[in-house]
Design a protein around this nucleic acid. Structure first.
Lengths: 329, 329
DNA sequence: TTGTAGGCGTTATCAT
DNA sequence: ATGATAACGCCTACAA
């Protein structure tokens, strides 16, 4: 295996000089920089990131913390996109990533998790789908031992940024369009997880609309569960004019319930998952690019690891109707 | 950060002794083993896997190579399960994993990929969805520079194992059941990717059945594409008694086509993906647990990294009908 | 059975 | 601007 030592020898310089060139240090003459780079090329040298991580305290290694819950949702489209977006971007930026699931940290304290991450030379983490109830991870974040980027959770501090769409506005927008198109008055709103950060925001959004348009609203907690949304719709759907759901999966559940009850009500969802295209009826939804959000999260994390301070980042979304034939491309 | 040195001091032994205890070396007295373990507990020591990987040439670090193709399939259920199954098992076995996608290696030679993996101290890889056409990765595998486990690709050598279900038999089984239940004679068979390893096997399976039962068969190449399966069914479905597809996604495409043409034909798929439950009609399919297969792949890789020789492993499958209400649990 | 010491490939702190 | 050299935390002959 060709190492930095070989490069140094080949270029006729010291190891430390090679290191400086590789890491774009300022104080290197153009001449030696070229010499070194040529040696790198000729030897096909690829720096050993493990050694770098061990040596430097700024390893730049990143962990993706993914909240996979195969319990409330059978098909997980979103997390796959998150993972893909992050890994691709990280590769591009030459950042090492490992993927971890929340489930691995059950019954572990914040200290234990910290130790584990440290043992992997992790200095930054991206958290997908943090809930308000997850005090452990929140503690981890507040301790600021790691640089963090939270997707869809509004915590910001010196070393923590948050990123995501404006859920309040998006919920308002998608519901508004559907309600106006169908001339509705009585709204059944099915929320996501109780105590979820996005749940709150989306609830605020629909309430903004209700107030503004003088509608009536019945709010029920669907826990992001397709089945619960189905049951809620069975129970309350008949006397309402529209079912607004805080997620596509729940929208599908609601839609299936309506079909079964053999009544028509407009339904709108949230997320823009492809699955929406499979269920027959078209529905309005809020479409966001999870892969892009995740890629941006990596960039933001890199900024933080480079010394930047935490901030809040808003990403774009669009209103769409998912259609089968568009999807199978 | 507490290191092995601290543990050694705390236990009153040498660093190397601690290392031996941690790595379950034989020649350690029970007394010192206990002493060391107590020190580990008391100090909450977690070994730094990065340092271990750097130091030992048997790092035990593993890369998952995933063939994500968002082009022919909109929703990727299978790879998420593969990833999850592998990562969880790896965590359990204390193996470090990184996740990589085939797309990252486009236009890269086997040597470049090797160098990259080496630069990450990777000693073992698991490959999901290798095709016959991917000469680059095949070269990598044949060079035996890494321990490999291939999921659904039948290459075995000194350092390479292969794992997966018996696709030939499974295709035979699922088609047989559907054909007998529906009393069919003329089969439309839609294959997977041309030159795919599993494609061949499944084709052999259906041909076994055709021969045995004296059926007629028309074979068309669907490339695992939902859209192509749809088009093929549109074109040939009418004059056949059944559409047998080499994947669920294609089965869905075929089914949608039939619905649109307003004719009924039994359709059977392959894989057992949850999405099957969403499309309305029930279909027979071959169900395999991708997470379990992936977990087993990790165990097998560990065996290989421990010096075991490559082998072929068959995993179980079942015949099922996916039903919406069972799925949304 | 236990300890000593060299090395893994980098980075970073000093001198020069 | 460049070069020695000491970490980083662990593994592993080899010596005791």
């Amino acid at each position: 295996m060709v190492s930095i030592k070989d490069v140094a020898k080949h270029a006729g310089v010291a190891i430390s000089t090679v290191s400086k060139v590789l890491n774009h240090y300022p104080n290197v003459s153009e001449k030696t920089r070229i010499k070194v780079n040529r040696a790198v090329e000729e030897l096909n040298f690829v720096p050993n990131s493990v050694a770098a991580a061990l040596s430097s305290k700024q390893s730049g290694r990143v962990a993706l913390l993914v909240n996979l819950n195969m319990k409330t949702q059978a098909i997980d489209e979103i997390n796959m996109q998150y993972i893909q977006g992050a890994i691709n971007k990280a590769m591009e930026l030459n950042i090492d990533v490992i993927t971890l699931f929340f489930s691995m940290f059950q019954n572990k304290t914040a200290e234990e998790i910290t130790r584990y991450l440290r043992s992997q030379s992790i200095t930054g983490i991206i958290v997908y789908g943090l809930s308000k109830e997850n005090k452990i991870l929140q503690k981890l974040i507040e301790e600021e031992q790691f640089k963090c980027v939270l997707v869809d959770a509004p915590i910001v501090n010196g070393s923590t940024s948050s990123i995501g769409i404006d859920h309040r506005r998006a919920q308002y927008d998608v519901a508004r369009r559907t309600i106006i198109d169908n001339n509705c008055q009585r709204v059944l709103y099915i929320t996501g997880k109780k105590n979820g950060y996005v749940t709150e925001q989306r609830l605020l959004g629909i309430n903004d609309l209700v107030r503004e348009m003088g509608l009536t609203i019945l709010v029920r907690n669907g826990e992001f569960s397709e089945l619960q949304a189905r049951n809620i719709t069975m129970k309350y759907g008949k006397n309402k004019d529209i079912v607004v759901c805080a997620s596509d999966l729940m929208a599908i559940g609601a839609m299936k319930a309506l079909t079964e009850m053999d009544i028509f009500r407009p339904v709108c969802g949230f997320d823009g998952i492809i699955l929406m295209g499979y269920v027959g009826k078209q529905m309005n939804t809020v479409r966001q690019s999870f892969a892009e959000i995740s890629a941006k999260a990596v960039e933001e994390l890199q900024r933080l690891m480079g010394g930047g301070k935490g901030q809040n980042i808003l990403t774009p979304y669009t209103l769409e109707r998912m259609k089968y034939m568009d999807i199978i491309c």
